[in-house]
């Protein structure tokens, strides 16, 4: 087990280093940052001064190492456009996206697990098919379209929910549903498959034969086994959501890192884009690492499959 953990940890570390290099060099390609910083009325001397000030004339590899070194200490530089430390901007935005991601994944699980269990228990009945239909429909509706439709209905026509911003819990309701429902089908399918497998296992059959109450079989035994991969996948999905909430945050003007990233890309604000790429990737790497450990700890067979 320890060997697996160490190997998996090294892989995570290597991935993170690769991503940081990609984030740095990719955004670097996007043109001369000195022009972006120098602004509207810059003269050639202004631009040269900016280049000098930000160390933009040093070799690119040297710039990467000094950037990565500072990033390790949580210093992502200063935004070209807002004169604020990037870490400070991230600190105010990250909780918003984290809240949204967590709420969305909980919403998705709350929908997916009951539906998946129902679909498995009533396998090949109308209930099963209904659940699958929900899944298929869910995958076919683009998130932003769904979000706009909700905005019209709940925000304007009914005036039940606030439309934009992130002031209170109510502001998160529509974004959570919009983001969460898209993750539901995958989780539901996995729950259903896991439940079907568990219900057909010898262990459960034996329990049934012994006359254990069906509810106890379902919830204490079958579901527990089926849920392990679901939880692991949910953790991974949460990682996806941190990077995938851009459209939702933009539509609802939710001040999270997705919106910040979109805005920074529009403005060519490199330090912000780099920092967001790195932070989001970092979260994903950590979450998949933990999910793999969880799977491995609970299911020894998986250790060899890592």
């Amino acid at each position: 087990m320890l060997r697996y953990v160490i190997r998996r940890f090294l892989l995570a570390l290597l991935t993170l280093i690769t991503v940081s290099a990609l984030a740095f060099f990719m955004t670097w390609l996007s043109g001369d940052p000195a022009l972006a910083i120098a602004g509207d009325t810059a003269s050639a001397e202004d631009i040269a001064a900016v280049r000098d000030h930000y160390g933009l004339d040093r070799p690119i590899v040297a710039q990467y190492f000094s950037w990565a070194g500072r990033a390790l200490r949580g210093d992502f530089g200063v935004s070209y456009h807002f004169d604020l430390p990037v870490s400070e901007m991230l600190a105010t935005r990250l909780p918003v996206t984290m809240t949204l991601g967590a709420a969305s994944i909980l919403f998705a699980l709350a929908l997916a697990i009951p539906l998946g269990v129902l679909a498995a228990v009533y396998n090949n009945t109308i209930i099963d098919r209904a659940a699958l239909t929900i899944a298929v429909l869910g995958q076919a509706i683009p998130t932003f379209w769904f979000a706009l439709m909700m905005m019209i209905l709940f925000g304007i026509t009914l005036r039940w929910l606030p439309i934009s911003g992130g002031g209170s819990w109510a502001h998160y309701v529509m974004p959570t549903i919009a983001l969460g429902y898209f993750a539901t089908p995958v989780l539901m399918r996995l729950t259903r498959a896991g439940m079907l497998e568990a219900l057909e296992s010898d262990y459960i059959r034996t329990a049934r034969a012994y006359g254990l109450p069906i509810r106890s079989i379902l919830f204490r035994h079958a579901l527990r086994n089926a849920l392990i991969p679901v939880v692991a996948l949910a953790a991974v999905q949460f990682g996806f959501m941190l990077g995938g909430s851009i459209v939702i945050e933009t539509v609802f003007s939710l001040p999270g890192i997705g919106w910040l990233g979109y805005d920074a890309i529009l403005r060519g604000d490199l330090p912000v884009v780099q920092a967001i790429l790195l932070v989001v990737a970092g979260f994903y790497v950590i979450l998949t690492f933990l999910a793999d450990l969880l799977n491995a700890a609970l299911d020894p067979r998986m250790r060899s499959a890592g």
Partner: peptide, 18 residues
């Protein structure tokens, strides 16, 4: 004063009373 980048969101807020 709220900074809302998206004009359509601004309109939605106006219509929705925000």
């Amino acid at each position: 004063i709220r900074e809302i980048a998206d004009v359509q969101t601004q309109v939605a807020e106006l219509l929705g009373g925000g």
